[in-house]
C-alpha cells in the first residue's frame, strides 16, 4: 500500500495524543500525576495538539476535505465513520476533564469520571483507527488481530513516554509512570515482533490462482497488464518495498521505537535530574520517530490482493 505521509503522520500523532490522554485520564483518577492545573493544561494541550494535527493531516488525504463532515453518517457500518464520530465525541469528556483540572483544579468525582471516560474514548478511537485497517480483508498484513493490538500498544507506548517526559519536565519524576513506560515499551515491542512474525510466516489465503480462478491449469503468471504504465490501482495499492529495505527499516523501527526508549527510560530512573529529563524527552522523541518508521512500514509492507492481478506471486 502506498505510504501516504498524511495518513502515517495522522495515525502516529493522534496515537500518541490519545495514548497520552488515556494515561493522564487513568492515572489522574488514581492521583498518580501532578495535580497542578498547569501540568494538566500542558499535558492535555499537548495531547490535543497531537490529535488535532493528526486529524487535520488526515483530511489532506481526502479528495474532498470540505465534505469531511459527511463521514459521520455511517457509524453503523464504517470503522472510518466510527473513528470520526468517536474522535469528535472524545473531545467532550476530555474537555470536561481538562476544565475540571485546569480551571477548577479538581481531578476527582465527576471530573475523575470524565477522565476515565476520556481514557476509554481515546483508546476506543485508536481501536477504531486500527479497525479501519484490520477490517480490510484484501490486505492480509492488516486483516489480523495483531493490528489493533499494535495500534493500541504503540499509542500507549508513545503516550507513556510523553507522560514520563512531562513529569520529568515538571520535576516530578514518578517511578510508576516510568514503570508504565517501560512496560508499555516491552508490550508494544513484543506485539510488534509478533505481528512481524505473523506476516512473515502466515501466508495470505489469496493467490494469483484464486484471484483468477485459473489455478486448476497450474501457476498463473501475468503476460500483459491492462495498461503498460501504472494506473491508480498500482499507484495506490501496488507500492512495493524491497525485502532488504524492509529489514533495514524494521531494525530502525526497533531501535527508535523500542530499544532506545527502553534504555533511556531506564536511564532516567537513575540519572540525575537534568540528564533524566533529557533521557525521557529523547526517549519520547525517538519513539515518535520509531512509530513513524513502523507506520511507514505498516503501509509499505501491506500487500493488496489487487496486485495479484498485476504480477504479485503472493500478498
Amino acid at each position: 500500500m502506498h505510504p501516504a505521509f498524511s495518513v502515517i503522520f495522522f495515525t502516529a500523532a493522534s496515537g500518541a495524543g490519545y495514548g497520552l490522554v488515556a494515561l493522564v485520564g487513568l492515572l489522574s483518577a488514581f492521583g498518580r500525576v501532578p495535580q497542578a492545573g498547569w501540568f494538566g493544561f500542558a499535558a492535555l494541550a499537548f495531547a490535543l495538539a497531537l490529535i488535532t494535527a493528526g486529524l487535520l493531516s488526515s483530511s489532506f488525504h481526502l479528495g474532498r476535505p470540505e465534505r469531511a463532515w459527511r463521514a459521520f453518517s455511517q457509524w453503523r457500518s464504517s470503522w472510518l465513520s466510527r473513528e470520526g464520530v468517536i474522535a469528535v465525541l472524545s473531545y467532550a469528556p476530555t474537555g470536561v476533564f481538562g476544565l475540571g483540572w485546569v480551571v477548577f483544579g479538581r481531578t476527582d468525582g465527576w471530573f475523575a469520571l470524565a477522565g476515565l471516560m476520556a481514557t476509554a474514548m481515546a483508546m476506543l478511537t485508536v481501536w477504531c483507527t486500527a479497525m479501519i485497517y484490520a477490517s480490510l480483508k484484501p490486505i492480509h498484513q492488516w486483516h489480523n488481530k495483531w493490528v489493533p493490538a499494535n495500534y493500541l500498544s504503540l499509542a500507549l507506548l508513545t503516550g507513556a513516554l510523553w507522560l514520563n517526559a512531562l513529569v520529568h519536565l515538571w520535576g516530578r519524576p514518578d517511578p510508576v509512570v516510568g514503570a508504565i513506560a517501560v512496560a508499555a515499551t516491552l508490550l508494544a515491542a513484543w506485539l510488534k515482533e509478533s505481528y512481524w512474525r505473523f506476516i512473515d510466516t502466515v501466508p495470505a489465503a489469496s493467490t494469483p490462482e484464486s484471484a483468477t480462478g485459473l489455478g486448476a491449469r497450474g501457476t498463473v503468471r501475468v503476460l500483459d497488464a491492462p495498461h503498460t504504465e501504472e494506473n491508480y490501482l498500482l499507484k495506490e495499492m501496488g507500492y512495493k518495498v524491497a525485502r532488504k529495505h524492509a529489514v533495514k527499516l524494521r531494525r530502525l523501527a526497533r531501535l527508535f521505537a523500542f530499544a532506545l526508549p527502553l534504555a533511556l527510560t531506564l536511564a532516567a530512573f537513575v540519572a540525575p535530574a537534568p540528564l533524566a529529563l533529557l533521557a525521557a524527552l529523547v526517549a519520547a522523541g525517538s519513539a515518535m520517530l520509531g512509530v513513524l518508521v513502523e507506520r511507514w512500514l505498516f503501509f509499505a509492507e501491506a500487500r493488496h490482493t489487487v496486485t495479484l492481478y498485476y504480477g504479485a506471486r503472493q500478498v
Binding site: 480490510l136 484484501p138 490501482l233 495499492m237 489487487v306
Partner: peptide, 14 residues
C-alpha cells in the same frame, strides 16, 4: 463522496 479512497482499499478486485 469525500474521496477517502477507503472503498478502493476494501475492494479486493481493484
Amino acid at each position: 463522496c469525500i474521496g477517502c479512497k477507503l472503498c478502493s482499499w476494501a475492494c479486493p478486485y481493484g
